[in-house]
Every structure is written in C-alpha cells, then in structure tokens.
C-alpha cells in the first residue's frame, strides 16, 4: 500500500492482490507510528471500485479515530465535487484560514514573552511586565495585567478575552489602547476588539 500526494490531497493506492485485513493492519500501523504525519483534518481519497462499501466504512472509522477523513473520489471529478456528491457526515470547513493555537498552561510572569503566529490560549494569569503577541486572537483564563497584542500581523478582526481584563496596554492590529491610570478589577469577563476604528471593551458571558 502507498500513500501518494496528489493535487487535491493524499491518495491511497493499494496493491490489487493485497487482501483487506492486511491493508487495514498496514494503515493502522502507519497511523500509529507517524502520528505527526497526518494532521487532524487531513483528507484522504481512494479511487472508487477498489473497496467494498463495508470495507470502506471500516477504514473511514479507523481514520476518523485519528482525525483523518476518508473519501472515495469519483473518477473524472475533482475532490470538491465528489465530496459534495458523497455528503459525508462530518462537514470539513474548507476555509484556508485555519489558525494554529498556542496553549500555555501556566502563569506568564514579568519579563516572559509568548509569541505565536496563530492564536494564544493562556490558562493562568498574565502578570505585569509580561507580553503576549499573537497573529490571531488571545484568550486568557485568568487575570490579564501585562501587555497583549492580538492581530500582530494586521488582522483587525482579532480580539482579546480575559476573565479580568486589566492590561497595561491593549494592541490590536495597528491600534494601541492604554489602561486608565486607576485600574479597577473588573468582575466579569471582557472582550476587547476593534469597532469603527477604535479598540472597545465589552463585558461578555462565559
């Protein structure tokens, strides 16, 4: 069995003589050994006709455990069309703007810096003197007292959420807002985002 890259994704090609249990075993080993090879959401195609319907379902189930989606391409049609023709139960969002997220499971202390091209999730506080710089949005499950910069590469739709949002500075894309000189601890979670050309903060439910 081989896994080939094609223009529209990865393609499974099997030996015609191989029997199904052997194929299944081989795929299972591949998935288990190279868990980094298939990122979640990868779409794998097979050519139709090679597999029985039940065999296909078994494989699809196996792949789904690892977050990979299996499709049968209908010959002569592109992937999108065959996806549409098959109506899979899991709809894959095909947007190109899937961001990666950096998860930080600790308090970010003064002098420390977290930078990410994608979004950032902090499970802890962001202390004064700490900096978070994210290409996407920032979510802080704790108190934010440092400097936070969302949409650092110009994404004006980026936002910042914190349980207690009291940063020294908020930056979103090209805008900067400074905290008032007497900050009071907010009792509710708040969200900062850009609204008509300036940074606004609104309480949110969470």
């Amino acid at each position: 069995m081989k896994i080939k890259g094609s223009r529209s994704g990865l393609q499974l090609v099997f030996d015609d003589t191989a029997d199904f249990p052997a194929i299944e075993q081989e795929i299972k080993e591949k998935l288990e050994s190279g868990s980094n090879f298939f990122c979640r959401g990868t779409i794998i195609q097979t050519l139709p006709g090679r597999l029985q319907q039940t065999e296909k379902e078994t494989l699809a189930k196996l792949f789904r455990q690892y977050g990979v989606i299996l499709h049968t391409t209908i010959e002569g049609k592109s992937l999108e069309e065959s996806v549409a023709a098959e109506k899979p139960e899991i709809q894959v969002p095909m947007q190109p703007t899937v961001q990666e997220m950096t998860v930080v499971d600790r308090t970010v202390r003064g002098g420390q810096e977290i930078t990410s091209k994608g979004s950032v999730l902090i499970c802890g506080n962001v202390n004064p003197g700490a900096q978070i710089i994210a290409g996407g949005s920032i979510d802080i499950r704790g108190t934010c007292r440092g400097i936070v910069h969302a949409g650092a590469y110009g994404d004006t739709k980026a936002f910042i959420i914190a349980d207690h949002l009291m940063p020294m500075q908020i930056r979103i894309a090209g805008l900067i807002a400074r905290s008032p000189d007497n900050v009071e601890k907010s009792s509710r979670a708040e969200k900062a985002f850009i609204k008509s050309g300036q940074i606004v903060i609104e309480p949110i439910e969470r």
């Binding site: 600790r106 202390r109 003064g110 002098g111 420390q112 202390n127 004064p128 003197g129």
Partner: peptide, 12 residues
C-alpha cells in the same frame, strides 16, 4: 512584588 514575579519565572 514585580521583581519576585520575575524571579519566580527565572526559577521556573
């Protein structure tokens, strides 16, 4: 307190 915070980070 600010310096203690920094030190805790360095210890970590």
């Amino acid at each position: 307190v600010r310096d203690a915070d920094k030190i805790i980070g360095e210890l970590g």
